[in-house]
Each structure stands twice: as structure tokens, then as C-alpha cells.
């Protein structure tokens, strides 16, 4: 039962959209979600390295060619590996990454509720 509940929460969280989706162009959004391979602490959007500038141009081209956001991500994932994506995919490697905070939240709630039940 608990697992179904957790799963529901996760799926809700995973599916809701990034804040600015509607406002800025997809182009910037994609660039922000990519990590630059030259200056490895920056996003492609923030970086001004040659690589990042080219990549931004390339995202623009791909969008004009009619590629969707997801297609561009998987294209770049194929080229550069999962590392380039700032938004970790939910898979075997990242179950703990996504679920652990939620579990901690639930556990915290349980501890607080327990305090009240104990006394009755």
C-alpha cells in the first residue's frame, strides 16, 4: 500500500512541468538542462565556451528541423552520455536519488505523528 502511495507521489512530481516552461523558449530551457563538458560546473546555457556556443546553435537548428525536446535530449545523451543531462533520468541508477528524500520526508512525518499517538 505504502509503495503505491510513494509511486503516486513520484509520478506526480516527475510529471509536473518546470517553472518557466511556458515563458522562455524551449531553446533556452534545453540549454539550461545540459551540462557543459568544457567548464564542467556550468550549464550549457550559462557557459560561453566554444563548445557551449556551438551546442546552443545546434539546439536551435534541431528545433527548426522539428525535433522535440525529448529527442534532442536523447540525441545528446547518445553522443555524450547521461552525464550531460542535468535532470537525472529515473532508472535503476537513480531510484535512490529520487526516492530517498521522499522517504525521509515520510519518515519525518511519521515520527511527528507518533509523538501524538504515544501519549493517548
Amino acid at each position: 500500500m505504502k509503495f503505491i502511495y510513494i509511486f503516486l507521489i513520484i509520478s506526480v512530481i516527475l510529471n509536473f512541468n518546470f517553472l518557466k516552461a511556458d515563458e522562455i523558449k524551449t531553446e533556452n530551457k534545453i540549454a539550461k538542462n545540459l551540462r557543459c563538458l568544457i567548464c564542467q560546473g556550468q550549464s550549457v546555457y550559462d557557459s560561453d565556451s566554444e563548445f557551449a556556443i556551438s551546442l546552443k546553435l545546434m539546439i536551435k537548428n534541431k528545433i527548426q528541423q522539428g525535433m522535440s525536446e525529448q529527442q534532442i535530449y536523447s540525441f545528446l545523451k547518445m553522443k555524450y552520455g547521461e552525464w550531460i543531462l542535468y535532470d537525472p533520468v529515473f532508472n535503476r541508477n537513480t531510484y535512490f536519488l529520487w526516492l530517498l528524500p521522499i522517504l525521509i520526508f515520510l519518515a519525518g512525518g511519521a515520527i511527528i505523528i507518533k509523538r501524538f499517538y504515544n501519549k493517548k
Binding site: 563538458l37 563548445f51 545546434m58
Partner: peptide
């Protein structure tokens, strides 16, 4: 010229 060709190859520098 614009560096997009090398991205197709998965290069970054």
C-alpha cells in the same frame, strides 16, 4: 564554421 559539425561527432574540443 559554427562548430555544429563536430557536435554530430560527439566531440567537444
Amino acid at each position: 564554421n559554427d562548430g555544429t559539425g563536430s557536435i554530430e561527432w560527439g566531440a567537444y574540443g
